[in-house]
């Protein structure tokens, strides 16, 4: 027994004997002509979550290195962490958390067909991302001034644990900053597309997925913050 019915907007739902319950995107069934038509929101969401799990493991490799080197050099890591500004780190944490709130509110507004609010919230989120990068930039500049960047002659005189700490610090916060920049770019594209009306309450999935990416960037920072700034 197989029942099929057409549900406009959400794609075709097929309830079938062996396969249980699956939602199938309409547009995705036509290779090559999917543009402009509604894309299966369920597929997009699953794909995005799969991508997020790859990002977790990408940073995971760095967390693995961090764990091993910190376990081997606990005292050096503590000493090195005192060179970071806790104030700057805390400020940036609050900035990213707030930007996550504004992104989720942007998605919420778009789903309720309030495009103007969505655009406003996205603009705030991008601005907050920019603040984060500026604070980060000042922190990095200070480290360079103190000769704590990799290959600096002053760092070479420090204990090995300190060198590793700063090597990891620059790599991990640097990779994170790249993700912030990518996230801001994506949010910017969506801001424009919402203003142009190509993303509306009828197809919010793409913005939802962009939001997922931004939250992921936030979550990674939530771990980076205590691991680098709060070592006691």
């Amino acid at each position: 027994m197989s029942i099929e019915r057409e549900t406009p907007g959400t794609g075709r739902e097929a309830v079938h004997e062996g396969g249980g319950h699956e939602t199938v995107g309409n547009g995705e069934h036509v290779g090559g002509s999917e543009s402009g038509r509604f894309r299966g929101s369920e597929s997009g969401k699953l794909g995005m979550w799969l991508f997020i799990s790859t990002e977790i493991l990408l940073f995971g490799g760095l967390f693995l290195l961090y764990a091993m080197y910190r376990l081997k050099n606990p005292a050096d890591f503590h000493a090195a962490s005192l060179d970071l500004s806790r104030f700057a780190g805390t400020l940036n944490t609050c900035v990213l958390i707030t930007s996550s709130l504004t992104v989720v509110l942007a998605v919420f507004s778009l789903q309720r067909d309030r495009a103007k609010d969505a655009v406003r919230y996205l603009a705030v989120s991008i601005a907050l991302g920019f603040v984060f990068l500026v604070v980060k930039g000042f922190e990095w500049a200070a480290k360079f001034e103190h000769g704590l960047n990799p290959n600096a002659s002053f760092l070479a005189t420090q204990p090995k644990g300190v060198m590793l700490y700063f090597g990891l610090y620059f790599t991990m916060t640097g990779l994170h900053a790249v993700h912030v920049i990518v996230g801001m770019t994506i949010l910017g594209i969506f801001l424009v597309r919402i203003r142009r009306g190509t993303i509306t309450a009828r197809n919010p999935t793409l913005l939802e997925n962009a939001g997922l990416y931004w939250h992921l960037v936030d979550v990674i920072w939530i771990f980076l913050f205590p691991l680098f700034y709060l070592i006691s």
Binding site: H16, E17, G18, E28, S43, G47
Partner: peptide, 17 residues
């Protein structure tokens, strides 16, 4: 890989458990 997992989950024909 992402494409294959999503396709297997989303695009099986009716009855294809």
């Amino acid at each position: 890989g992402i494409n294959i997992v999503t396709t297997v989950h989303q695009l099986r024909a009716p009855g294809m458990g």
